[in-house]
C-alpha cells in the first residue's frame, strides 16, 4: 500500500489513522541515524572558527607600511608598483601613493617599466605580472613583497606625458585653428556619472563646446579601470589634431584608445576614428566602436633603418556623431620588435 520506507509522519498517520495523534518524539529517526543531524552542530563550530581564522589573517596597516618602506628605499626610475589583489589598491596608494604618479596608476601596460614591485596578500598576483617566480620576495607579516625584473624598457617617447609640448589644432569649416594651452580655475562638481573632470591646464578648442579640450587625464574605461590618457573629444567629421614635432620615431608605436565608461556601456554611440600620421603620412587608424573597451593597436613608425630618425607624429580624432564620444588615448613610441616579449 505504501512506499517501502515511508516518511515518519506519514507512517505515523497510517498507523494512527490521523497525524494529529503523532506526538513529538514518536516520529524520531532511529538514534543511529540521528548522528547525521549532529553534523550541523559541528558545522556551526567550523563556521565560527573559520570566521576567527579569516579575521586573524587580515594584514595590519603596519605590515603594509613595512613593505612600503622597503619599496620606498629601493625604488628606481622606471619601477612600477602594483598590488594584488586589485581591490587592495587604495591601501597601496595610502602607504605608497607618494611614489605613484597619475601616469603610473593609469598605465595601459608595463612596457615603460624595468622592474615591477608588488605588495601582495592572500596569495594573489597582478594579472600583468610575468608568469614566473619573482626575482625578489620578502614577507612582512601577511604582506608579501615581490619584485620582477622586466628588462630594458623599449619605450622611447610617451605621447601622453609629453602632450603639453604638442600643438593642438581644430579644423573648422576647412580652416585650421590653434587650440591655446590655458590655465583655468579648478573644475566644479564631481561625482558619479560626471566622467572626466578637466585638469587646470588644458588646450581649449571651442569655448561654446566646453568638452572640446585636450589634456592628460585619468579616465574610467569600459572595464572601470583607470587610464592615464589624452582626452581628445571629437568635434565631428572635421578633426581635432595633436601634433608632436621632432620626436624620436623609434621602430613602432603602441596606441590605446577608449571612451569613458558611461558613454560606452550602453552601446548606443557612434564610432570614433583615430588616425595616426607620421610626417603627414597615415600609418594606422583605429575605429573604436562601443563595446571595444580599451582597444590597442601597434604600427611600425619608420621606413628607413635609421633608429635615430625623428619626425612629426599627429593623432587626429573624428566622429560622425560626436555626442558623448569622450575619446581618450594613450600612445608611446618604442624601439625593438613588436613581437619580442620581455618576459
Amino acid at each position: 500500500m505504501l512506499d517501502e520506507s515511508p516518511p515518519t509522519e506519514y507512517a505515523c498517520a497510517v498507523v494512527t489513522g490521523s497525524s494529529d495523534k503523532c506526538e513529538r518524539g514518536q516520529n524520531d529517526s532511529p538514534p543511529r541515524r540521528s548522528v547525521y543531524w549532529l553534523l550541523i552542530l559541528a558545522f556551526a563550530l567550523v563556521e565560527v572558527i573559520a570566521h576567527a581564522v579569516t579575521r586573524s589573517r587580515v594584514p595590519t596597516i603596519e605590515q603594509w607600511r613595512d613593505a612600503a618602506a622597503h619599496v620606498r628605499a629601493n625604488r628606481r626610475e622606471r619601477d612600477a608598483i602594483k598590488v594584488a589583489p586589485a581591490w587592495a589598491d587604495p591601501i597601496l596608494r595610502w602607504v605608497l601613493g607618494d611614489r605613484i604618479s597619475l601616469a603610473d596608476a593609469g598605465a595601459s601596460d608595463l612596457d615603460a617599466y624595468q622592474r615591477l614591485w608588488t605588495l601582495a596578500i592572500r596569495g594573489a598576483r597582478p594579472a600583468d605580472a610575468p608568469r614566473r617566480e619573482p626575482d625578489f620576495s620578502r614577507r612582512y607579516g601577511r604582506v608579501e613583497l615581490l619584485r620582477w625584473d622586466l628588462g630594458q624598457s623599449e619605450v622611447l617617447y610617451d605621447l601622453v606625458k609629453e602632450v603639453k609640448s604638442a600643438e593642438v589644432t581644430m579644423v573648422r569649416r576647412g580652416s585650421r585653428e590653434v587650440c591655446p594651452l590655458l590655465s583655468l580655475l579648478p573644475a566644479s562638481g564631481g561625482g558619479l556619472g560626471q566622467g572626466v573632470l578637466p585638469p587646470r591646464e588644458l588646450f581649449a578648442c571651442d569655448s561654446p563646446r566646453p568638452w572640446l579640450w585636450v589634456a592628460p587625464v585619468v579616465m574610467e574605461n569600459m572595464s572601470l579601470e583607470p587610464r592615464y590618457c589624452v582626452w581628445q573629444h571629437p568635434a565631428g567629421k572635421e578633426p581635432i589634431r595633436v601634433s608632436y614635432r621632432d620626436v624620436p620615431l623609434g621602430e613602432w608605436m603602441r596606441f590605446y584608445g577608449g571612451l569613458y565608461y558611461e558613454h560606452e556601456r550602453d552601446l548606443k554611440g557612434g564610432p570614433v576614428k583615430a588616425v595616426i600620421r607620421i610626417d603627414g603620412k597615415q600609418i594606422a587608424e583605429m575605429i573604436h566602436r562601443d563595446g571595444d573597451g580599451w582597444k590597442a593597436l601597434s604600427a611600425p613608425t619608420r621606413e628607413s633603418t635609421d633608429p635615430r630618425k625623428r619626425g612629426e607624429i599627429t593623432i587626429e580624432v573624428t566622429a560622425p556623431r560626436p555626442h558623448e564620444r569622450s575619446f581618450c588615448w594613450a600612445a608611446s613610441v618604442r624601439r625593438g620588435s613588436q613581437t619580442r616579449g620581455r618576459r
Partner: peptide, 12 residues
C-alpha cells in the same frame, strides 16, 4: 562603479 570618482579626484 564609483571608481570614476577616485580618478576625478586624482586628476583635480
Amino acid at each position: 562603479h564609483f571608481a570614476e570618482v577616485d580618478f576625478q579626484i586624482w586628476t583635480v
